Computed example of a mutant assay.
Amino acid sequence: MTRDDNDSAPAEDDQLLVLPDDLRHELKEPMGPIETDARRLLEAVDGPLIAVGDVVTYHFLQAGRQPDVALVDGRTKRSAVDEEIREAVTAGASIEVRNPPAELSAPVVRALRRALATDEPTTILVDGEEDLVALPAIVAAPEGASVVYGQPDEGMVHVTVTDDHRTEMRALLERFEGDTERFWNLLDE
């Protein structure tokens, strides 16, 4: 497994964006339809599959589909996932990065870009929290890709990437606190 942290840079250089408290309520609303059955959700997938979350990734693996990009952190609803899920979703982890809760760090953005650029399925193991990576994933993924993330106690939210979704996510990310210019430079590389 490779680490994508830039250990030579000061820690503050890794922090790009922080979720402001006044945006938290907006992220509670699902950005797409909610599905509870992974096989049925997969019927609507036509293109690359980006899974954000351990349980979502596990359900796809159980349904026989390895996500093209998976982001996992060993947790669900702020608690450790079961050992079976942890072992299944981290077995193929190829990149390990730090990303603190409620933030988007430079290492996780670089890892996302690298994972999207390769033809091999890539699992990014996040030390911290991976939830917010769904937002830049929607911006950076190709047209028609599926970004799927968990909606606690409801199911899996399926976002099929379109220009409208990208525009909406860009506007939302612009409202985060931090170095948005550096964030966009890294994401758009």
Rank of each mutant, 00 (worst) to 15 (best):
D7P: 15
S8V: 14
A9V: 13
A9H: 08
P10T: 12
P10Y: 08
E12M: 10
L17M: 05
P20W: 14
D21W: 09
D22G: 13
L23K: 06
R24K: 09
R24D: 09
E26L: 14
E26F: 10
K28E: 10
K28Y: 15
E29D: 11
E29G: 12
P30D: 07
P30L: 12
G32E: 08
G32N: 05
E35K: 04
D37G: 00
R39Q: 09
R40V: 11
L41S: 03
V45F: 03
V45N: 02
D46P: 14
L49R: 00
A51Y: 00
V52E: 00
G53N: 02
D54F: 03
T57Y: 00
Q62N: 09
A63H: 07
A63D: 02
Q66D: 08
P67Y: 01
P67H: 00
D68M: 05
L71H: 04
V72H: 05
V72Y: 02
R75E: 10
R78K: 12
S79H: 12
D82Y: 13
E84H: 12
I85T: 14
A88Y: 01
A88T: 12
A91M: 10
G92Y: 04
I95T: 15
E96V: 08
V97M: 08
R98Q: 10
R98K: 14
P101C: 07
E103M: 09
L104S: 04
L104F: 05
S105R: 00
A106T: 07
V109T: 15
R110I: 11
A111I: 13
L112W: 02
R114C: 05
A115D: 14
L116R: 03
A117K: 08
T118W: 02
T118M: 11
T118A: 09
T118N: 08
P121A: 03
T122D: 06
T123F: 02
T123D: 03
G128V: 05
E129H: 03
E129T: 07
E130I: 02
D131W: 01
D131L: 03
D131T: 04
D131N: 02
V133W: 01
V133Q: 08
V133R: 01
A134T: 06
P136C: 02
I138H: 01
E143N: 11
G144D: 07
A145N: 02
V147E: 00
Y149L: 02
G150S: 03
Q151M: 12
Q151P: 11
P152Y: 12
D153K: 11
E154Q: 15
E154V: 14
M156C: 07
V157E: 05
V157Q: 01
V157N: 06
V157P: 06
V159A: 00
V161N: 02
T162N: 14
T162F: 10
D163Y: 11
D164G: 15
R166E: 06
M169S: 05
M169K: 06
R175Y: 06
E177K: 09
G178Q: 06
G178W: 01
T180D: 06
T180G: 06
E181A: 12
E181R: 15
W184D: 06
W184K: 06
D188G: 13
E189T: 13
E189N: 12
